[in-house]
Each structure stands twice: as C-alpha cells, then as structure tokens.
C-alpha cells in the first residue's frame, strides 16, 4: 500500500475559546472519492479551510504528497495541487464566466508581466493556451455558451457548476467540494453527480466531498468520515456508516433539535 495523498494527524483548531475541530485523523488515498459529513456546525468547512491554508491548525499536522502543508498560504496550497469550491458561492461576480476560469488557470501559465506589457510573442502564446484550455473546461460543464456572460447573471445551478469548473482549472490533484449540490433540485443534483464522476475519471482526481444529502453521499462515495462537534465520530464504507449507532444518534439529535 503506497502512502496516502493527503493525511491529517491529530489536527485541531481553536477560535478563541471554541475548539471548532479537534483530534482529527484522516487520510485519503490517490484516486479515492471520500465523503465528509456531519450536522450543521460540525466543523466540515473548517476542515476544508485548514486543508487549503485559509486557517492554520493550532494542533497537529497536514501532509500532502508526503510533505507538510501546514502554514502555507492558500495560493501556495493551490499550487501544490489542492483546489476547492466554496459552500457560499464565491465567484468573481462582475467578471465573465470565461475570465473566472482563466483566473484559476493563471498560476499554470508562464508568460511574464513584461511580455504582456510589451505584447511579446510569449504573451500571445500563453494567453492563447489559457483561452483554449479554459473553454475546454467550460465545455465539460456545459458552460461554454455562457462564456461572455457575467458570472453574477448565471442561474444558480450554473453558478455552482462554474465554481467546480473554476476549481478544476486550477489543475488540482485533490479537489475539495463543499456542498456542491446545495440548493439544487434532484435532477440538477443527479446531473452534477454524474459530472463529478466524469471529471474524476478524466482528470485522474482525488475528491473529498462535503454534502448534506445523505443518499447522495452514500451513493457515490467509497469511504465516509463523519464529524460531530468538531470530532470524528465514525469512518467507513457507506454501509458501515449507515448502521453506525453514533452516526444515527448525531443525526437524530439534530433532527430532534430542528
């Protein structure tokens, strides 16, 4: 068995007095599609934020491809090969759909500021490549028809898709999806899941997926981690998770509260 692609060891973070996440041990092997579930406020997004350098864990360590990424800035983490989507859509609203994707593609291009200012051949070559690649990404998500539209004018479901297209354009090895189907109807959700399966194959991706819709997570994930009150309470196959009393209790507890 080779080393996992990403590994969290005793990871924890504290905000003031609040321990939002503690003692989390997780690993994801290359090529896996892993789910991260848990009730509201369990610490799922916070875990993403630690994985992507938005927050630095106050405890433990995170390694990616065998090297620690703790303390790196978000853009450095992205360059290493982790990219993400946001639970609350964070597109570049006043820019075009195409520009949104091109921006994620930016760090993979090489032409310098000077070459752009002087419009040297390397500028045209680099920009041409970015344009072509970005349109390819848009095509996969059926967004190419909207390419000159401002991101804010897209229908909601398309905005969610653009978030993923953009994350993909950043050239990740590990893709983190934070509730990508939130607010979508069942048909849109199903289409999205098919797409995720497709890009996973096409781009040889490893995926960590946060999702509230249990049936959905159970349907496509090979392995699932369950967070509750900042701690991992279960790990296993969908079948194991479904029958885990702790998980049932965590979710039932939530339902009772609601």
């Amino acid at each position: 068995m080779s080393n996992p692609l990403v590994k969290l060891e005793n990871v924890g973070i504290q905000f003031g007095g609040l321990k939002a996440v503690q003692n989390v041990n997780m690993y994801i092997n290359k090529g896996e599609l892993v789910g991260l579930i848990g009730p509201n406020g369990a610490g799922k997004t916070t875990t993403f934020n630690m994985l992507t350098g938005v927050y630095t864990p106050t405890e433990g360590d995170i390694t990616f491809e065998g090297k620690s990424i703790k303390g790196l800035k978000p853009y450095q983490v992205t360059k290493r090969g982790i990219s993400r989507t946001f639970q609350n859509i964070r597109l570049f609203k006043d820019l075009t759909v195409l520009d949104n994707v091109k921006i994620a593609n930016h760090h993979l291009a090489k032409h310098s500021i000077l070459s752009s200012v002087l419009r040297l051949p390397s500028h045209f070559k680099g920009e041409g490549k970015m344009e072509k690649e970005s349109i390819e990404f848009l095509k996969i998500f059926g967004l190419d028809v909207y390419k000159d539209e401002l991101a804010k004018n897209l229908p909601y479901g398309m905005q969610r898709r653009l978030e993923i297209a953009r994350a993909l354009a950043a050239g990740p090895k590990l893709l983190l999806l934070d509730e990508p189907a939130a607010g979508m109807n069942p048909q849109e959700t199903q289409d999205l899941m098919d797409l995720i399966a497709l890009i996973r194959k096409e781009f040889d991706l490893t995926i960590l997926l946060i999702e509230h819709d249990m049936s959905l997570v159970m349907g496509i994930c090979e392995r699932i981690y369950v967070l509750d009150h900042g701690q991992l309470i279960a790990e296993g196959t969908p079948e194991e998770i479904r029958n885990n009393p702790k998980v049932i209790e965590a979710y039932l507890g939530e339902e009772v509260k609601n």
Binding site: Y75, S83, R84, K93, L95, A104, S116, V117, R166, A170
Partner: peptide, 29 residues
C-alpha cells in the same frame, strides 16, 4: 491596458472581486 488584458491584470481583477477566492485559485494576492 496591456497589463489589464493579460493573466496579470485578471489576477488583479480577481483580487478586487473576491480576495479570498483569488487566493484560493492560486493567485499570490
């Protein structure tokens, strides 16, 4: 305008639009 209409200018626009997202997309803000 040459700067603006290039990957460099787009990075600056991304910062204007959403600095956190720009950072997450690999831009050294």
């Amino acid at each position: 305008s040459n700067f603006t209409n290039s990957r460099h200018g787009r990075s600056c626009l991304a910062i204007r639009e959403d600095e956190i997202a720009a950072d997450a997309m690999g831009i050294n803000t």
